[in-house]
Design a protein around this nucleic acid. Structure first.
Length: 478
DNA sequence: CCTGGAGTTGTCCTA
DNA sequence: TTAGGACAACTCCAG
């Protein structure tokens, strides 16, 4: 075995099991595991606030799994790696691939710079079931519609690889003197209180990811297809942040849920759950093939869309004070937990884009900062979709009605009352539309509209018609 | 090139 | 109360 260390560069694969780069390095030699917080190259997509809280704990957990050997740095990745190599007589650098355009560019440069220095660089697939360049139509171009992408492009390929076997023991290289401690990265905000509540809601570790998966399979997969629409039910996996940071691999999820779902006869629920992983892959494929995706309308005809300017409206939406309970509940869940139920994400997104008629990118930015699962591919794809300008987008006349949606998917207000406690004594009938309640109902519920809870900041019917009219003016470019 | 079928997640009106 | 059709027209995809 060679004594020259192999650098394993952790990025969005903060786990030790089923980690192809780590496994390969552990097999071949001594391992120097590193993490670099690279705020230099990430441009306008520097990691957001909630993600940094998550990262802090994920790194601490990973370091523990690596027996305290994780070396942590902050700054320009190429400079840091180059310096390390000049000091440590490194034989190779391994990593698992990332797909953000800025990372692809950066990693390409690093790979070529290191190769010039005769360092062996190898990248692995640690976070996608199907590489985007392998999923193509018959004519070699990319898929633009989800269903054929998934059914034909993905499912007709050989199954995604099985997770790797248990990691063998690692022999570590000597530690590095100028490595920083996690605390020095300054990932936790000093003044804000919300990271406490984020920490209360999650067990941020590799073990926590597997625990979540097991709990989901036990309690949530049955009736997933239907139940996933109801924010007060336990039918969502809540695996998204773990997946984003790579504390669990999609392969681990894919194979474990298939084994469980098939043995329990839950074929339909299983297929729906797996297709959600497919959506994640589809988003990555879109981003890979269209690197401007986070900032540029997928459909160019949206470039002239007459978005409104409304800072107060935006602020009310962000703070969960729109006067529409299901919207406010979602925005407050986001603020307190770094997460929001999928159905509610659609409702609040539709409200921002269609009812307030604010640019989808404003929502994208807010989610980027607040979500612990903020993921460039998924976030861009989802906001483009709800904005109507994305791939496979909804017809323009599909505008979510927050009253109907609340009554349908949160019938007894379990979710609304949890996050909007000022309405806890409102009867079901007026929970989604408190401004329509008679005075005595409001009084009995101890709600003074405009004081305890806001009046609606926008008229639903009028704003819907305004949006429909605006969308109608869209014309394909000449 | 042509053709037919299909496209995550809704709402509203009418009978 | 409820089920079904309209809401546009277009693009995508596969044969």
């Amino acid at each position: 075995m060679s004594q020259k260390p192999i650098i394993v560069w952790f990025r969005q694969d903060l786990r030790i099991q089923d980690n192809p780069a780590l496994a390969e390095a552990a097999n071949k030699g001594t391992v120097l595991p590193i993490y670099i917080l690279d705020d230099v190259n990430s441009g306008e997509w520097k990691m957001g606030g909630a993600s940094r809280v998550w990262l802090h704990h994920a790194l601490a957990d990973l370091d523990k799994s690596l027996d305290g050997n994780l070396q942590i740095f902050s700054g320009d990745a190429e400079k840091i790696i180059t310096k390390l190599i000049s000091e440590k007589d490194v034989q190779a650098v391994y990593w698992n691939r990332c797909y953000e355009p800025w990372r692809i560019n950066r990693d390409k440069e690093i790979k070529s710079a290191l190769t010039d220095k005769d360092i062996d660089v190898e990248s692995f697939n640690g976070s996608l079931l199907w590489e985007p360049w392998n999923v193509r139509k018959g004519d070699g171009t990319m898929y633009k519609v989800f269903t054929p992408y998934y059914k034909r492009g993905c499912l007709e390929k050989p199954d995604p690889r099985e997770p790797l076997g248990k990691l063998k023991s690692i022999s570590y290289a000597d530690t590095v003197t100028d490595s920083e401690k996690i605390n020095k990265l300054g990932l936790l905000p000093k003044t804000l209180d919300w990271h406490d509540s984020i920490e209360d809601f999650w067990t941020i570790s590799e073990a926590g990811a597997h625990e979540k998966l097991d709990i989901f399979l036990e309690n949530g997969l049955n009736d997933y297809k239907e139940g996933r629409n109801f924010p007060s039910q336990k039918n969502t996996s809540c695996l998204s942040p773990y997946l984003h940071f790579g504390q669990i691999s999609p392969n681990q999820i894919w194979h474990k849920s298939r084994a469980y779902g098939l043995s329990e006869g839950m074929e339909n629920d299983l297929a729906t759950f797996c297709s959600e992983l497919g959506w994640r892959e589809f988003s990555y494929s879109l981003l890979y093939n269209f690197p401007e995706f986070p900032r540029k309308n997928w459909q160019a005809k949206f470039d002239n869309f007459p978005w409104e300017t409304n800072p107060e409206g935006l602020k009310a939406w962000q703070k969960g004070r729109t006067g529409y309970p299901i919207v406010d509940a979602g925005m407050r869940e986001l603020w307190h937990t770094g997460y929001m139920h999928n159905r509610v994400r659609m409702i609040v997104g539709s409200f921002l884009v269609k009812n307030l008629m604010l640019n989808w990118q404003l929502g994208e930015e807010w989610f980027w900062d607040c979500l612990v699962d903020a993921d460039l591919a998924s976030n861009s794809a989802s906001w483009q979709w709800i904005g109507g300008c994305g791939a496979d987008a909804a017809p323009y006349f599909r505008i979510f009605n927050p009253i109907t949606q609340g009554q349908k998917f949160d019938k007894h207000g379990t979710y609304i009352k949890k996050w909007v406690p000022e309405l806890k004594d409102m009867p079901d009938k007026y929970l989604s539309n408190p401004w329509e309640a008679p005075d005595d109902v409001l009084e009995n519920a101890n709600v003074k509209l405009g004081k305890d809870y806001p009046k609606p900041i926008v008229n639903l019917k009028a704003s819907r018609e305004r949006a429909l009219a605006a969308f109608k003016t869209l014309k394909a470019p000449e």
